[in-house]
C-alpha cells in the first residue's frame, strides 16, 4: 500500500498555504513585518473588519506570516492550523493549561486566548524560534539534561515560560520559578524536574526538589 506521509508543511494544503503567504518574502526582516502591520492599521483606521476573513500579518520568529483569517481566529489556531508551526500545543483552549504559551514581545501569553488579528504588530516567538541554527538554548538543554520532559506535550509551554523568566530575572529563586510556571500544567508529573532544569539553566545552585538513589536489595 502507498505510504502516506503527513506534509511537512502547510495548513489545509501545501498549495493554499503557500498561496496565503502571498507576495511577502518569507525572509523579510522582522521590522518589515511590523511596518506592514502598522501600515494596515493606519489604512484601516477605525474601520470595521470581518466577520469574514481579513488579511492578517503575523511576525513569528522573525518572519512574516501573511494569512487570511476571520477576526475570531485565535493566535494559536492561526499557528497550528494555518502554518506548520505546531510547537505551541492546544491543551484546553481556555487559558488554563499553558501548553500554548508563546512570547508576545518577550512576554509569555496564552496563544489560545489571543486573537490573531490583535497579535499583529507584535513580535511573536514560538518554541520553534528559540534554537538558533539547530543549537538548543540553555533552557532547552537543561530540560534534556534533567529529564524534564515525559510525554512532552506540555514541554514547549514550560520552555517558553522559563525562557521569559530568565530573560527578565536571570537568577531566579525556586519560588520565582514556581510563580512563573504555575500557569503551565503537566499531567505526567515533570514538575520537580522542570524546576531543577530552570535552576540549572540559570546557573543557580539547585534547590533540592528531588533526590534519588539506588539501593541493592540483595
Amino acid at each position: 500500500m502507498k505510504k502516506p506521509e503527513p506534509e511537512v508543511f502547510g495548513a489545509h494544503s501545501r498549495r493554499t498555504f503557500l498561496k496565503s503567504l502571498g507576495t511577502v518574502a518569507v525572509t523579510a526582516a522582522a521590522s518589515r513585518a511590523q511596518s506592514v502591520a502598522a501600515e494596515l492599521e493606519k489604512v484601516n483606521g477605525e474601520q470595521t473588519v470581518g466577520p469574514g476573513p481579513v488579511p492578517v500579518t503575523l511576525n513569528v520568529n522573525g518572519k512574516p506570516l501573511k494569512l487570511q483569517l476571520e477576526p475570531r481566529v485565535t493566535l494559536l489556531d492561526a499557528l497550528r492550523n494555518y502554518s506548520s508551526l505546531t510547537g505551541a500545543k492546544e491543551g484546553c483552549d481556555r487559558a488554563a493549561c499553558g501548553a500554548c504559551t508563546v512570547l508576545l514581545d518577550n512576554l509569555p501569553i496564552y496563544a489560545c486566548q489571543k486573537l490573531a488579528i490583535e497579535a499583529q504588530g507584535h513580535e511573536i516567538t514560538t518554541v520553534e524560534g528559540l534554537a538558533k541554527n539547530g543549537r538548543l538554548t540553555k533552557v532547552q538543554e537543561a530540560f534534556v539534561a534533567k529529564d524534564a520532559t515525559m510525554c512532552g506535550y506540555c514541554t514547549p509551554g514550560f520552555v517558553m515560560s522559563l525562557t521569559a523568566l530568565l530573560q527578565k530575572n536571570p537568577q531566579p529563586s525556586a519560588d520565582e520559578v514556581r510563580h512563573a510556571c504555575a500557569g503551565n500544567l503537566c499531567r505526567c508529573g515533570t514538575q520537580p524536574r522542570v524546576l531543577e532544569a530552570a535552576l540549572q539553566a540559570a546557573g543557580v545552585a539547585a534547590a533540592r526538589t528531588t533526590h534519588t538513589e539506588v539501593m541493592d536489595y540483595a
Binding site: P192, T210, T212
Partner: peptide
C-alpha cells in the same frame, strides 16, 4: 501544578 508539588525522595530498590 508546580507550586503544589513537594520535595520528592525516591529510592529505587535494585533487584
Amino acid at each position: 501544578n508546580i507550586a503544589d508539588v513537594p520535595d520528592i525522595d525516591v529510592i529505587l530498590l535494585n533487584m
